[in-house]
Structure formats: C-alpha cells, structure tokens
C-alpha cells in the first residue's frame, strides 16, 4: 500500500494526465475550428469539419474529467481557482456550446452562404475557447489571492498582460496543431497549405513559448530558481530542438502524422515545464498539492477506478479514432 504522500503525487499525476489529454486532443479540434473560418472553398471546409466530427465529443469529455478530477482530488484548489477566473470560464463554456452547435448543425444548413456563416461562428468560438483557456492558465501561474480556503480577490486579476499573453500563445499553438492535423488527414491544396502554415507556426509557437518561459521566471523568485536549474532547462532545450527538427523532417517523410506528433510533443514539454515550475504548488502563491488534497480515502477510491478504467477508455477511444482514420475525400452535394 503506497503511503499518503505517494497517493497525493499519484492523484496529481492522474489530474495532469486528464488536463494534458484534453489540451492535446481538443486543442487540435479547436485549431481545426479556428482555421475553418478563413477557408473559402466549400469542399475544403467540409473535409475540415468532417475530420473532427466523429471525435470532438470524446475529446471534449477530457475537460469534464479534468473538472470532476480537480473537485474530487483537490477540492480546495477547485474552490479557489474557479471563482478567480469566473468570467473567462463562463465565456469558454458558452463558446464551447457554440462550437458544438456549429459543428453538428452545419449539415442542416441549406445554402453554402449559411454554412460559411456557421463556420465563421465556429472559428470565432474556437478562438474564444483557446484564448480563455490560455488566460486561465496564465492567471493560475501568476497566483490567486486566497484566505481561509476561499478566493479573496476582485474577480479581474486575470485581466493583465501576462495572462492575455498566455491566451495568445495557446491560440497560436492550437492553430499550429490544427494545421498539422489537416496536413495528416487531407490531400491536395488543403494538405499543401496546411504544411506551409504549420512550418511557419512551428517557429512562431516555439519563439512565443521561449518568451513565456523567460516571462514566467520574472514573476516569482521561486519560479526563477526552478527555471534556471540546469537539470530542468537543458533537457528541455534539447528536447524542444529535437522535436522541432523531427517536425520539419516529418514533412519530408511519407508518415504524414509525424509533424502532428512532434507538435503534440512540444505541448507535452511545455506542460511538463509548467508543472515542474509550480511543483509542489497547485495554486500559487501558497496552496500546495498536499494542502489542497482531499482525504486519502477519497483519493484511493478514485485512483483505483482510474487505474482500472483508464486503459479500457484509452483502448476504445483509440478504436473510435481508427474507424474514421485515413485521408478525407470530401463530397459536396
């Protein structure tokens, strides 16, 4: 039986896995959604929408798991963080509803004019979702003022340069993922355009990320100390370079999924870097994983379920992806 300290770490790992899975999977869908608005050609837009239609719902479910997991495993963090980012969260949920409707209702629109309007709305909603998520992450890293286990602020702390910059980074990153997905899943002009855009966005995203790391280090002396540790920063730089090289090499390979997987790798790296910077804090400046954790009885109860059900979930989700894999061959009626 692992000790209670280990239980807390395992719980944090389970939560991190859920949130990261969401960012990787739905981030790609949102990126495709963002690109939908800027595309004129009806056939290309159908290919884009159809490529995410059978999978977006399952991808979004990871966000529900993240919410339930945070409440269950670290209720104190859930209670402090959410009121602090009240408006960005509400806005994000409304935008997610618009995205869901735009994607599933577009087939019921009679004219292509209406479809274009719906796709533009879908783009706007996806941008809003990505931006809000970045702002929430930024507000979290910056720290939330709390007292006696409750949020203690005015509700506007998220509205500042750093959090908005995080929103921008995430949006650009999602654009990149969306392009990589389309490069993998489509052919012809859309395929080529996605490659061009992905190649530019890769450099742009990594530059923004490097700036973000530098800015984060200036927020708090503890972050600066962590981020200047050679054991953390040198592997990160090496990995990032390798992934970037793999990304560009992927475009010359016959395996069209390679650029996407390298881009996802960069996201994993960024997420890991954030976690390592904050550790052992869950909600800076003071709330640690230990202090926010629910009791060991609750955490054990959930970890058992997680360990049993997660492999099964991953198995059938992968199968669901495989059924609709391969290149899109859109037909416009």
């Amino acid at each position: 039986m692992p000790s209670d300290d280990w239980i807390v770490l395992l719980s944090a790992a389970a939560l991190a896995f859920s949130v990261l899975s969401y960012v990787l999977l739905d981030g790609t869908d949102l990126g495709v959604g963002m690109l939908l608005g800027g595309t004129r050609d009806a056939t290309q837009r159908r290919a884009m929408a159809l490529s995410i239609l059978p999978v977006w719902d399952a991808n979004e479910t990871w966000l529900v798991l993240g919410g339930g997991g945070l409440l269950a495993l670290f209720p104190m963090a859930y209670a402090i963080l959410l009121p602090a980012v009240y408006l960005p969260f509400i806005l994000m949920f409304l935008a997610l509803i618009v995205r869901a409707m735009a994607l599933t209702f577009r087939d019921h629109a009679g004219s292509d004019r209406l479809k274009r309007a719906i796709d533009a709305l879908h783009s706007f909603a996806s941008l809003l979702v990505g931006g809000c998520q970045g702002v929430v992450l930024g507000a979290l890293v910056q720290g939330v003022d709390q007292q006696d286990g409750q949020y203690n602020g005015m509700g506007w702390e998220w509205l500042n340069a750093f959090a908005l910059y995080c929103g921008l980074v995430l949006v650009v990153g999602y654009f990149w993922l969306g392009n990589c997905w389309l490069y993998w899943r489509t052919e012809g002009e859309l395929h080529c355009r996605s490659r061009r855009q992905a190649r530019v966005l890769a450099l742009f995203t990594l530059t923004l990320l490097a700036l973000l790391v530098a800015w984060t280090a200036r927020l708090d002396p503890r972050y600066a100390e962590r981020l200047t540790q050679p054991w953390l920063i040198s592997p990160a730089v090496i990995l990032a370079s390798a992934l970037l090289a793999g990304h560009y090499a992927g475009f010359r390979s016959r395996r069209h999924y390679l650029p996407l997987f390298c881009a996802l790798g960069v996201f994993v790296l960024g997420f890991a870097l954030m976690a390592a910077t904050l550790f052992p804090l869950l909600v800076p400046p003071h709330l640690t994983l230990q202090a926010a954790a629910s009791g060991p009885v609750s955490q054990r109860f959930m970890l058992v379920g997680f360990a049993i059900l997660m492999p099964i979930t991953l198995f059938y989700n992968t199968y669901g992806f495989r059924v609709f894999s391969g290149k899109m061959r859109p037909i416009v009626r």
Binding site: L65, G68, S294
Partner: peptide, 14 residues
Amino acid sequence: GEILGPLMFYEVMA
C-alpha cells in the same frame, strides 16, 4: 468536495 467529487469523477470515467 471529497464526497461529491468522486461520484462525479466516476460518472465521467465509467
């Protein structure tokens, strides 16, 4: 949260 959270967590998982 320690009681409601796990029930909602299982709802998502299962």
